[in-house]
């Protein structure tokens, strides 16, 4: 009799399954107590119940490979559990405890079932450990993936949020840039600005870099690319919000900003843009 079948036998008996579940729930509540406690005991009971049923079904097939087809429903269930925990803000350790706190009650029952047969007990415990470790790892993997999803979504949101193209005047667009400029962001900035130029038929665009903390050669190159693309489309670009520190850096780096109009602040840039488009401002 291999280890897996003895686990299947254990879980096949409703009484023993009940004992394991009670013990497991107690372990879970002590392991995760003191934290947010955002999962109700009812829900935990339901999750443990479902896990036990799925595990029972999977082990009854006799397969021990967690990546196999027999464990598919169990894997899906665990992925669902870790996804919901990741969204509720549980830590990875708390998520992993769901599986690992199941070990103790299971081992106790295996111990009771084997009596004094130490060799059989060792074999069973080894099989159970392997199985639960693999399941635990799978849970963590799913947790990690869903956290990465959250991060990716937030990054996309930030990208969208930080590149608003505003219309300042008829024929004048402004793009206040906030945060560090990298290749991905410049691409988004450029695309949204160029599209707005076409939509509004604007002739002048003001790139305001007041919110850009540092300008290095790479950022300067990105800015120049945007300016060139604008010129190719037939629009003009003014860079505003150049702080004294940035002006010094640009010159020290030897970046050639010739042919690019730059102004110290947005007001000056707007005044110039109005002049270029033929408006006169009077008090």
């Amino acid at each position: 009799m291999t280890g897996i079948t003895s686990i299947a036998d254990l879980l096949g008996s409703p009484v023993k399954q009940q004992t394991i579940q009670t013990q497991w729930l107690r372990n879970l509540s002590t392991a995760v107590s003191g934290t947010r406690g955002s999962i109700s005991s009812d829900e935990l009971a339901k999750q443990t119940q479902e896990f036990l049923q799925l595990l029972s079904a999977a082990t009854r097939s006799g397969a021990s490979d967690v990546d196999g087809a027999a464990y598919k429903p169990l894997r899906d269930f665990l992925e669902g559990v870790s996804r919901s925990r990741a969204q509720q803000g549980f830590t990875s350790a708390e998520t992993a405890m769901f599986i690992f706190s199941f070990k103790q009650p299971l081992f106790e029952q295996l111990h009771a079932a084997n009596g004094t047969n130490a060799a059989a007990l060792a074999q069973d415990i080894w099989a159970a450990t392997q199985l639960l470790d693999a399941l635990g790892l799978h849970t963590i993997k799913a947790y990690q993936l869903s956290r990465e999803d959250v991060i990716r979504r937030q990054q996309e949101d930030m990208l969208e949020l930080s590149t608003p193209v505003v219309k300042l005047w008829d024929g004048i667009l402004a793009l206040p840039m906030i945060g560090t400029l990298d290749s991905a962001r410049t691409q988004v900035v450029m695309e949204s600005l160029l599209n707005r130029i076409v939509e509004t038929g604007s002739e002048v665009a003001i790139l305001d870099i007041t919110g850009v903390p540092t300008v290095d050669t790479l950022v300067a190159q990105h800015l120049l690319k945007t300016v060139t693309a604008l010129r190719l489309m037939g629009a003009e670009c003014i860079i505003s919000g150049v702080r004294p520190q940035i002006a010094q850096t640009i010159v020290h780096l030897g970046v050639d900003l010739q042919g690019v109009t730059t102004k110290a602040n947005l007001a000056d840039a707007l005044a110039l843009a109005l002049k270029r488009t033929g408006y006169t401002v009077s008090r």
């Binding site: 691409q187 450029m190 695309e191 160029l194 599209n195 130029i197 076409v198 690319k225 060139t228 693309a229 604008l230 190719l232 489309m233 037939g234």
Partner: peptide, 12 residues
């Protein structure tokens, strides 16, 4: 005249 944004970006 009339260069499209995608074309401008490609050329740059």
């Amino acid at each position: 005249v009339g260069m499209r944004p995608a074309v401008a970006i490609t050329l740059v």
